[in-house]
């Protein structure tokens, strides 16, 4: 039985729906096996900003029940360094490259999108509208109107399909997703981490240097799944789903509720083989259930 796993966003085709979440595989570490990474649908390097960012004070991570809280603070060397030193290696990958960007100054998004639009090796751009670790009173992704405004402005100048990455720290994530779609986003990705904290009771101090951070890992999966389910009811553009995926079954849950692609994030820290195991497991499931096309799984939830 031949199996069709390929999916698409805009005009970009992916050989299968499995990718990784930004920030969980760096820019391809020196330890990465490119041959394995090329078996995935796409690669997403760590979020970049226009100027370099130092990141948050340590400790930056803490282990929690079935997950972790991080407050890295989008540490990165900035766009110029990315283009000169990271992109050449990433460009060698034979799978689509989705570059994740975020902005902390007015017009940074415009500059990032304009310059990445000129790079042939960049297939899509993900707008990280939802990083909860920075001391902004309100994030773009927490406001449907701001989301719509930013995405619409960037859509006008982008030569690449745009993905809006959404924050789960909202009352109605579907409303934000709908705003992104109305503004012309080619896809939405969700969820980013949930605002969280941990306290060292002996010292009565926050564990994290930044006081608060974002929770990820299997602890958030059922909540993330419900959010993807809600978003699917409101939008027609593809959804890239993430939130605690550790196994193929987790990934299948997201696909069944309507995700077109699934991203493995925190699980990469526990076992870097997870994305490949998830892909193998999806294939095994398709074989077992005699499904020949992944599209027969996507959004196939039966509720009656």
């Amino acid at each position: 039985m031949s199996m069709k796993l390929n999916v698409s966003i805009g005009h970009i085709q992916f050989q299968n729906p499995v990718t990784i979440a930004s920030g969980t595989f760096g820019y391809i570490s020196k330890y990465a096996k490119s041959a394995d990474i090329q078996k995935l649908g796409a690669f997403i390097p760590k979020t970049i900003t226009l100027a370099a960012r130092e990141g948050n004070p340590s400790p930056r991570i803490v282990e929690t029940a079935s997950g972790m809280i991080n407050a890295i603070g989008i540490e990165n060397d900035g766009l110029d360094h990315f283009l000169a030193h990271k992109l050449p290696d990433l460009a060698k990958l034979k799978i689509p490259l989705i570059v994740s960007v975020s902005a902390y100054q007015h017009n940074d998004f415009e500059t990032l999108v304009t310059r990445l639009s000129q790079e042939e090796s960049v297939s899509l751009i993900e707008l990280n509208l939802s990083c909860p670790n920075l001391k902004h009173a309100r994030l773009i992704a927490q406001d449907p109107a701001a989301t719509q405004e930013v995405v619409a402005a960037l859509k006008k100048i982008s030569a690449k399909p745009l993905i809006a990455k959404l924050s789960p720290n909202v009352t109605d994530i579907a409303a934000v997703a709908f705003a992104a779609q109305e503004a012309g986003a080619d896809a939405v990705s969700l969820v980013n981490t949930f605002s969280a904290m941990a306290v060292d009771v002996h010292r009565r101090r926050p564990v994290l240097g930044n006081v608060t951070g974002g929770l990820s890992g299997p602890a958030i999966k059922p909540i993330a799944l419900k959010m993807v389910y809600d978003v699917k009811k409101r939008v027609t553009i593809p959804i890239i789903a993430m939130g605690g995926i550790m196994t193929a079954e987790d990934a299948l849950e997201f696909l069944i509720v309507g995700a077109t692609m699934v991203a493995v994030g925190t699980a990469n820290f526990v076992d870097p083989q997870t994305p490949l195991r998830v892909l193998q497991g999806i294939k095994a499931y398709m074989k077992q259930h005699r499904v020949s096309d992944i599209h027969d799984i996507i959004g196939s939830l039966r509720t009656s």
């Binding site: 920030g23 595989f25 760096g26 570490s29 760590k46 991080n70 890295i72 540490e75 820290f269 870097p272």
Partner: peptide, 9 residues
């Protein structure tokens, strides 16, 4: 977390 220099934790 990662041990390989990617998460910056």
């Amino acid at each position: 977390a990662c041990g390989v220099g990617v998460c910056l934790g």
